[in-house]
């Protein structure tokens, strides 16, 4: 009887400990996966946007303020290397960065089917410098951050 009581007591304690440990590890693993995904989202967003922005002709919006201070927005318009007007914008509902082409004539903007990046909580494009050839990109996906800058090399 004593043996049985002790073994039940030990099993209960150990069962509780193991269950708690497993639940902790599950949460921990979920956090790691989340962090890894956030990092991948930031990388993907920065890589795709920088590639096109670097080769673009000019930034149409945002532009530095009239007092020459930096200006930020969650949307950017620029003329790409082919002369098309492109817009990247943050959709707060779907947490996506989307790309669309603004037509020259009277027509609705054509939004790309596939977004630039998903799982993005915040994005800011900042116009820096009077020439407006340098854009800072601040991206946040969960607890992962990106502080990228792109200088337009296509003069």
């Amino acid at each position: 009887m004593v043996e049985l009581t002790i073994s039940i007591g030990l099993l209960a304690i150990l069962g509780g400990m193991v269950t708690h440990w497993f639940s902790m590890q599950r949460k921990y693993q979920a956090r790691i996966t989340q962090s890894s995904e956030g990092q991948q989202n930031v990388l993907m967003a920065n890589w795709k946007m920088s590639n096109e922005l670097r080769m673009s002709r000019s930034i149409l919006y945002p532009r530095p303020n009239s007092d020459k201070s930096i200006k930020s927005d969650s949307i950017i318009y620029f003329k790409n290397s082919c002369g098309e007007i492109i817009c990247y914008y943050h959709d707060k509902n779907t947490l996506e960065i989307k790309r669309c082409v603004i037509p020259n004539g009277v027509a609705a903007p054509a939004v790309d089917k596939k977004p630039i990046a998903q799982g993005i909580n915040e994005v800011f494009f900042t116009a820096v410098g009077v020439e407006n050839r340098l854009v800072d990109i601040y991206v946040r996906s969960l607890e992962s951050y990106g502080l990228e800058s792109v200088y337009l090399i296509n003069d």
């Binding site: 303020n65 009239s66 007092d67 201070s69 930096i70 200006k71 930020s72 927005d73 800011f124 900042t126 800072d136 601040y138 502080l147």
Partner: peptide, 9 residues
């Protein structure tokens, strides 16, 4: 200076 959503410094 990181961001500026406003219209002046």
């Amino acid at each position: 200076a990181l961001l500026n959503p406003g219209t002046d410094k």
